[in-house]
Each structure stands twice: as structure tokens, then as C-alpha cells.
Design a binder for these strands. Structure first.
Lengths: 123, 123
DNA sequence: CTGAATCCTGAACGATACTG
DNA sequence: CAGTATCGTTCAGGATTCAG
């Protein structure tokens, strides 16, 4: 496995296709938001749809599949009728959550800075 | 978990349009990669093009403009001929870099985990 | 309720050509 | 070298429908 020295041999930028693929899976709006909300608690599909505002049925399903495939999210199906499916972050998923929260936190903190930076730029 | 008062009034998920816009600006593949490479050193446009493998001329320009507008990247033009333009991370940009590096580091560390998770899923 | 499949539109993107 | 503009294509993603 590739160890941490980030910008060494297996650099993400010059990446082999797999690394790039993984990165693309998580470096997108919906995936990040989904992980963020699942970080708070386990959620059902329909709950996720409400929590992640603006996500479509299709995009939610699609991203959940990807995240499940990558082992970041666990999908538990209750064989009831109607079906009940719960999504939870896996252990590795929790690790990623920390990093994502850092980004979210940063965004919050620099909210007004960005606002004025834009005003300056647009002028 | 959540460090800053993230999930309070201005929650990213229920966000007003500006917050969502900002988040979209940075939560995408190219923006993250650009910030990542600029975190190492100041780079010229053509150098960036080489460092960020696979990015097109157009996408690079586009993302740089956005990042500049949001005040994450500083653009310095040398009025020479031929023109020389250098891109640097701003102070706030450096803050975001830390968060991004966390994600990159996480990806590296879980590289093989994801690989096997996928193998399991696909079976 | 969850999820898969289909269709269709608009946005993203790459290629190319042109300017300073 | 850096940047803009245009064009054509591809593809993401929304709406809808059907199934378990």
C-alpha cells in the first residue's frame, strides 16, 4: 500500500487511473455532502434525501452506490415491506469525514472573506 | 466531527445559495488538485498545466479564475513579452490546503482498502 | 420505501483558432 | 506565454416510469 509521503512516488496528480478514479469519487459535491450528513447519524434513504438538500433521487442513489462500493458507506437492508434501508459510515468513512468537516468548517469561517473577495474581483 | 458551529444557523446542507455556490467552487476535482499543487510552490500557467495532469487549457483557466475570484489564489502578471503569470495561494487558500491535504492523505492511506472493497462489491 | 431504467435537455468539456 | 471565443460533442443529471 502507498504510505503517506504524499507528494512522492504515487502522487495523486500524476496518478495511475485507480487513484484518480477514487479521488473523483469523493471530490464531488454530492459525495462530500452525503458523507457529511451521515457523519451525524445513520439515515434511511428518504431521510438522506431530505437532509441533503437539492439532491435528486437519481444522484443520491448513484452516489450511495459509489460510496458503498468504495467501502465508505455501509448499506443495511431490512427485509420488511415496505423496504427499509439504512446507510451508515464505515470506519474508514469516518476518517474521511474528519477531513471533509475541515473543509466545511473552512468554508464557514471564510464565508464573508470570500464574499468581499468576489465583490473586489467583480469590480 | 464538527469543530466549528457548522451545523447551526448557516448549515451547508440547507444552505443559502451563496454558501452552496462557494462549496461547489471548491468541491470539484480540478479546483482541489490545483490548490494542492499550488500548495507546494508558486507556479506559472504553463507549469500548472504540466503539474495538474490531464487538465485542459480551458479548464485550468476557468478554475483559476474562479479560485482567484474567491480569493483563494493570487494572480501576478509580469508585463513582459512574452507574458509571464504566476499563481500563488493566498493566506486563506493555505488554510484550505491543509484540509485538502487531509483528504489526499486519506486517499493514499486507504488506497488498498478501497481496492479490496470494490473487489468485494463487484462480486 | 427503495431502486433501476429510460429519455431528454443543458451544462461541461476538448479542440481549435485567434489576440495581445 | 497567457488568455478569450467559438463550436461541436459528450455526458451529467433531472423528470418520469416501472418493479420489488
Amino acid at each position: 500500500m502507498v504510505t503517506t509521503p504524499l507528494h512522492k512516488d504515487a502522487d495523486l496528480r500524476r496518478a495511475d487511473s485507480l487513484a484518480r478514479e477514487i479521488f473523483s469519487d469523493i471530490a464531488n459535491k454530492w459525495a462530500l455532502l452525503i458523507i457529511d450528513v451521515l457523519g451525524k447519524r445513520t439515515l434511511r434513504f428518504s431521510e438522506l434525501r431530505n437532509e441533503v438538500e437539492g439532491v435528486s433521487h437519481k444522484m443520491l442513489t448513484q452516489n450511495l452506490r459509489t460510496l458503498e462500493r468504495d467501502g465508505l458507506v455501509h448499506r443495511k437492508v431490512y427485509p420488511t415491506v415496505p423496504p427499509r434501508v439504512e446507510y451508515t459510515l464505515t470506519e474508514p468513512g469516518l476518517g474521511l469525514l474528519a477531513a471533509i468537516d475541515a473543509i466545511c468548517g473552512w468554508t464557514q469561517q471564510h464565508y464573508s472573506y470570500i464574499q468581499s473577495a468576489r465583490a473586489r474581483f467583480d469590480a
